[in-house]
Simulated scan of single mutants.
Amino acid sequence: MILIAMGVSGAGKSLVGELLAERLHCTFTDGDAFHSAANKEKMHHGIPLTDEDRWPWLKTIRAAIEDKQKAGETAVFTCSSLKRSYRDVLRAGDKDVCFVYLKGSREVLSERLGHRTGHFFDPSLLQSQLDTLEEPGADEAITVSIDLTPEQIVDEVLKQVEQR
């Protein structure tokens, strides 16, 4: 099984992903690690990424997913996965890939980004991400509110994974 914690910046993907991996006794990989230096530089300067910027990044994450599957491993990844077409690349028709959509209000996300330090993402890009976001339906993802504590989010995700 591959879980991908998704959502806009500030949703808590990394923290929730790490906690999920800990509970599942598996590896955790932050999708941001696969961004090119050029992508990181653009985001640092408040320049939104284009689809052309994202395709190579998404394909690299998909290759890492396939490596985990070939090794027979469960793994947790993070990736904003803002559009259905992006999720389609990551999923590649694979029923073993499950998205976890961390959903939050603009106000909560903005507040979180305002307190975050040491990250390349410019908080001014939040609106661009929200504009790009195509929220997944129940057929595509488990949706959990970021108003819950991280531990409650993990509990809810694992409960819903069991029910699938």
Rank of each mutant, 00 (worst) to 15 (best):
L3G: 03
A5Y: 00
M6S: 15
M6W: 03
G7M: 03
G10N: 12
G12L: 07
K13S: 05
K13R: 07
L15Q: 08
V16P: 01
G17D: 09
L19K: 14
L20K: 03
R23E: 04
R23Y: 01
R23G: 02
L24I: 06
C26P: 14
T29I: 15
G31D: 02
D32C: 12
D32W: 07
A33P: 00
F34V: 06
S36L: 06
S36K: 12
A37I: 09
A38C: 01
A38H: 06
K40V: 14
K40C: 05
K42M: 06
H44N: 15
G46V: 08
P48Y: 06
P48N: 10
D51E: 14
W55N: 02
W55T: 14
P56R: 09
W57V: 09
W57N: 05
A63N: 11
A63L: 04
A64F: 03
Q69V: 13
K70V: 00
G72C: 05
E73T: 01
T74Y: 01
V76A: 12
F77W: 03
F77L: 05
C79D: 03
S80G: 13
R84I: 02
S85Y: 01
Y86F: 14
R87G: 00
L90Q: 09
L90F: 05
D94G: 08
K103G: 04
G104I: 07
R106P: 08
V108S: 10
L109W: 11
E111Y: 12
R112N: 04
G114D: 10
H115Y: 01
R116I: 06
H119S: 07
F120Y: 15
P123F: 09
L125R: 08
Q127A: 10
L130D: 11
G137V: 06
A138M: 07
A138Q: 12
D139C: 01
I146Q: 10
E151M: 04
E151A: 15
V154N: 04
D155M: 07
L158K: 05
V161Q: 12
E162V: 10
